[in-house]
């Protein structure tokens, strides 16, 4: 237990959380038909998770690539972008992640405290449609903003049109500060959808 890699633990916790959060965003914002979602319990609250193999594969593969960057504290933002049919973003869920300098001790109490904080994010996502306007039919992408360019990273630079949003409305959803991670979630919404 002593040589438990702390960065790895944080990355595991965050990626598990991001997976649940992405599924829930897709459900709440009606990106995909509700028929592919099933009710589950995560962080002791009900959530909706997709049962569609291809969609689940996309989310899993994406987070599989994000994980090593979180581990190394190189991921600045993980962004779930909802796009219209012309591939212009209409809504962006931005997870801004930062980790304080590494701690040497981890305790179960500390981790369960983090779970409580993550639950609050999930609850906020569940009700976020109350403060957002409906989206036109479209698609999603998961983007990543990172500090450095590693040549071995298998992703490509996003197109300008997938990233640029004119005068977005900013809606803060939740912020958490714990000993192992700081995270902020906000939505950027295009004025005209």
């Amino acid at each position: 237990r002593q040589d438990l890699n702390f960065g790895q633990v944080v990355a595991d916790i965050l990626c598990e959380f991001l997976e649940v959060a992405i599924h829930l965003i897709l459900y709440v914002r009606e990106v995909y038909p509700s028929g592919i979602f099933q009710k589950r319990k995560k962080y002791n609250v009900p959530v909706q998770m997709s049962c569609h193999p291809e969609l689940n594969q996309y989310i899993q593969d994406t987070l599989h690539c994000v994980k090593p960057l979180i581990e190394k504290n190189e991921a600045e933002k993980v962004v779930v972008v909802i796009m219209d049919k012309e591939h212009h973003p209409v809504e962006r869920f931005v997870f801004e992640i930062s980790q304080p300098p590494l701690l040497s001790i981890s305790s179960d109490t500390l981790l369960s405290h983090v779970e409580q904080l993550l639950r609050a994010f999930i609850l906020k996502i569940s009700v976020c449609d109350a403060v957002l306007n409906n989206n036109p039919p479209g698609n999603i992408r998961v983007l990543l903003q990172k500090y450095t360019t590693n040549t071995d990273f298998p992703w490509i630079v996003a197109d300008e049109q997938e990233v640029h949003m004119q005068e977005p409305r900013l809606i803060p959803l939740k912020t958490m500060t714990s000993d192992i991670v700081k995270m902020q979630l906000y939505v950027e919404e295009r004025a005209q959808k």
């Binding site: 990106v31 995909y32 038909p33 028929g35 592919i36 569609h52 291809e54 969609l55 996309y58 989310i59 593969d61 994406t62 690539c65 600045e76 962004v79 039919p137 479209g138 698609n139 999603i140 992408r141 998961v142 983007l143 990543l144 903003q145 990172k146 500090y147 450095t148 360019t149 990273f153 298998p154 992703w155 490509i156 630079v157 996003a158 997938e162 990233v163």
Partner: peptide
Amino acid sequence: GGGGAHILKPLMSPPSREEILNTLLDL
């Protein structure tokens, strides 16, 4: 762009809403 931040996307794309609707209809 600029400022040292890089915005990246995976090479793969998720299935579209239409593709998923079609698979639901096929069931």
